[in-house]
Amino acid sequence: MPMVNIAGKEVEVDEEGYLVDLSQWNEDIAKYMAVEEKVELTDAHWEVVNFLREYYAEYQIAPAVRVLTKAIGKKLGPEKGNNKYLYELFPYGPAKQACKIAGLPKPTGCI
């Protein structure tokens, strides 16, 4: 699998650019992935990215968008727990983009 150099560290990614070993994740990697995805990271983006990492640590999966939306609404408030808000932050899909930036494995279950 391809190796990329991120902030002086060799990091393995899969053919679609997802981090292979999520224990390697750090903020530099998140910033690199965000540039790849053409997403400019703001505090609002970080809030979702950190939420995903916490969710993964607790449940060992990346949530379906429907579940992510509901869970974010519960934790961060209804004005953030909706598709419009999440797609504005991650236009090509919170599943695909936010997970990649959060260093989580490629979303499964996309048929």
């Binding site: 949530p63 598709n83 919170p94 599943a95 996309c110």
Partner: peptide
């Protein structure tokens, strides 16, 4: 995880 939310 899937972007095809609320699929029916």
């Amino acid at each position: 995880m899937s972007d095809m939310d609320d699929m029916d």
